[in-house]
Design a protein around this nucleic acid. Structure first.
Lengths: 191, 191
DNA sequence: GTCTATAATGGGATAGAC
DNA sequence: GTCTATCCCATTATAGAC
């Protein structure tokens, strides 16, 4: 594999486990098998690396959301898939969504990275608002209230449930924290 | 004020803004007005400081929960007060609950600090389970399902809503994310 | 593209005078 | 209890050979 990609992969794993301040070029160098000075050839500064990391992550996530949105499914099924994204991102209780992991050490981040993070949040909320709006029409989700509030509550629930599960290193904590939310979603139809 | 207390206060502010890795003895020294070497007289290592910090915070929080629990109020009013604790902890969008702030850089923390953090979470969940159980009886909260799931979902919602509000540096984001939850609580009676 | 070598900085921590 | 002075280490980053 491409050294550059290997570095990004290694950095993503580390960042999602330990946050931005929690990984160093020395870690990456050991992990990838080159010297730390060589990393600067690919990413001149750590801020450059972080920016590309978060951009790549946001793009991948946005693709996943677009993929879900395009499916010919109702609101409940889209939200179930959304829930699955956050469950999978936990990697069994060891990792967080990169944006949650970066949200903590926020003050260490460069302005461009913060900008991507904020966009990620705004896009997520907009996507959720859209899905909740369609769910209100197709009646596949019970008790849908104000769309903006639903979207923010859902995002908060995902991020908080990740923190709880990560703290306990136990994926089941995520499932329990999101059980009531999942119960609002009408069952998947058996095609 | 006591130098020791001033150091703890300064450290708490810094930690809740920037996480464990995000503050240093140099910061505290500048803030409190002594030299950084002097801090070691009060707290030999940073792990010692962090432990006392998190213990003090957990104790204060536990007192607040006990205070709420002892009030002659129904489940809804207790949960409203709980919500208020997390809203106030945001300090208008600039700070997180210490346990949320520490949850991120988890891997940097010493085992004793992690232990206090885990106890904090467990105690919070137990407290919430108890309140939801009583709310099920007094019918002051709508649609109460499984107690354990309700408790974990509520904790996750608080923590996630804090992250969202902090990211936007806007307290109102917290209110919006928790609006649906607040709407489940029966209105406060006018004595 | 990767290496060795080396800044330059900042971190936590210690010794010992006052 | 606080200070100065110092240590050791890890960090990001650069220069220049190969």
């Amino acid at each position: 594999m491409d050294t550059r990609t290997a570095l990004l992969d290694s950095a993503e794993r580390a960042a999602r486990q330990r946050g931005y301040d929690g990984f160093s070029y020395a870690n990456l160098a050991r992990d990838v098998g080159i010297r730390k000075a060589s990393i600067h050839h690919h990413f001149p500064t750590k801020a450059d690396l972080a920016l590309e990391l978060v951009e790549r992550y946001a793009a991948t996530f946005a693709d996943a959301l677009a993929d879900i949105a395009e499916r010919p499914s109702n609101g409940a099924e889209k939200l179930r898939a959304y829930l699955g994204l956050y469950r999978d991102a936990l990697a069994g209780g060891t990792q967080l969504c990169l944006c949650v992991a970066f949200s903590a050490g926020r003050e260490s981040l460069s302005p461009p990275v913060l900008a991507v993070l904020n966009r990620f949040h705004a896009d997520s909320i907009a996507w959720l608002e859209h899905v909740f709006a369609s769910a209100k029409v197709d009646r596949s989700v019970s008790g849908v209230g104000d769309i903006g509030a639903e979207a923010r509550a859902t995002l908060a629930l995902m991020e908080g449930a990740q923190l709880i599960a990560r703290g306990a290193a136990d994926l089941d904590q995520f499932n329990r924290a999101t059980a009531a939310f999942a119960a609002r979603l009408s069952p998947a139809s058996r095609h």
